[in-house]
Simulated assay, not measured.
Amino acid sequence: MSNRTLRIGTRASALALWQANWVKAELEQRYPDLAVTLTKIKTQGDKILDVPLAKVGGKGLFVKEIQEAMLRNEIDIAVHSMKDVPTVFPQGTGLRCITKREDPRDILVLPAGRRSLADLPQGGRIGTSSLRRKAQLLHLRPDLQMIDVRGNVETRIRKLIDDHLDAVVLAAAGMKRLGFAEQIGCYLEPDVCLPAIGQGALGLESRLDDDRTNELIDFFNHTETACAVIGERAVLATLEGGCQVPIAAFGTVNQGQLTLTALVADVEGKTLLKRSTLVPTDQAHAAGVALAKELLAEGAAAILNEVYGCRTFPEAEH
């Protein structure tokens, strides 16, 4: 990297470019003499659009090629949606900053005349490829039909009409960032549908030994969001989870205390385990680990072992 240039690696989707351009604009405002460029990188997740993520590997599909570009010194930082970021990084890179969170909730895009989940007809067709969303909605409404939809935000919104769906589930953050807020039919509060781990936050990845770049980007880190996401990701790491199993965790910080809730469900939503804890913010990681272990002991181990097809987690003794 030259003295006056910083190279950002990003996916080429509309949402990824919005996020990367936001980071670019913030850097340029803070450092007027810094030239910031974008490098668009196509990831495996961008190439496979006709298969649900749960069947093609899930976590890592949207970051691997970007991380490889960083290791080849082709880019200096990567801008990721935190919910796409695995808990293990390639040697030499790491998560440097977690930005202030946008609205973390899920939302429904609905046809005219419908205003809530309760308005959906019996046997309604719901568009989502997320096992997390499917399991939680089926737990509430076993009558619903879950229809796999992939693609960018605009494509999935369009499928409401094109595929004759009764609702499409999306993240509020993406809808708002791309200017589609007026198309939000209703919000799914966390007690209805617990968000994905890291949902709404961005992560900035960099090389661990790149002191100059790390110093430039440190101002992006938002302490409260970072605390919440650290706790959420500790749940994920302890459960060894990915997109193949319905796992969720969501943290909020208030007056130095972290409220952290975690969830594991089977793919049909018949069994859903949810637990919460309240801890000081400096115990975020430990709280996530403890919460995950509590879920494992209370039945999550059996769910995860069935999904993964092997005995990965010890069963609780009875």
Rank of each mutant, 00 (worst) to 15 (best):
R125S: 03
V245C: 13
D148F: 00
L71Y: 04
A249T: 05
T39W: 07
V56D: 05
L6R: 03
E306D: 14
S130T: 04
S129R: 08
T37S: 15
E182S: 08
G174V: 10
A286E: 08
K134Q: 13
L291A: 02
E205S: 07
A69C: 14
S81G: 07
V36R: 06
Q255S: 12
V307Q: 07
V79W: 03
I161R: 14
V109Y: 01
I184P: 13
R30G: 04
P52L: 15
S206C: 10
Q29T: 11
P111V: 03
K274D: 04
G299S: 04
P142R: 00
Q19V: 02
P142V: 04
R150M: 13
G200D: 06
Q44W: 03
D266E: 13
A237C: 11
A234K: 04
S2K: 09
R158N: 14
L71A: 09
N221L: 06
A316E: 00
C310S: 15
R156T: 07
L34M: 03
G200M: 05
E205N: 04
P121K: 13
L272F: 03
A284M: 06
V267E: 12
V253G: 09
G203S: 07
F180W: 02
E240M: 14
L165M: 12
D191Y: 03
T223F: 15
T238R: 13
K100M: 11
V63T: 01
V264Y: 01
C310T: 15
I8F: 00
T213F: 02
K159V: 02
L34Q: 00
D143A: 10
T128Q: 04
D166A: 01
I230D: 15
A284E: 04
F89G: 00
T238C: 11
L202I: 05
M82Y: 01
D162F: 04
K55N: 09
E28R: 06
S81F: 00
V264D: 07
L208G: 08
A16T: 13
R115W: 04
V79R: 00
R132S: 14
V85D: 08
K100G: 09
A228M: 07
L295S: 07
T93K: 11
A78F: 02
G179P: 08
E26R: 15
R4W: 03
Q91M: 01
D282H: 12
G123M: 07
L61R: 06
T252A: 10
G174L: 06
P195C: 07
K159D: 09
I66E: 09
P32W: 15
E74I: 02
L202D: 02
T223A: 14
P52R: 14
N221R: 08
A167V: 04
E240C: 13
F250V: 06
V245A: 13
T155F: 10
G185R: 13
D148M: 02
Q67W: 05
M146N: 10
V168L: 01
V279A: 04
A297D: 15
L295E: 00
A249I: 01
G57D: 12
P121M: 01
P280W: 02
E294C: 07
V85H: 11
R132L: 15
T213I: 13
R114Q: 15
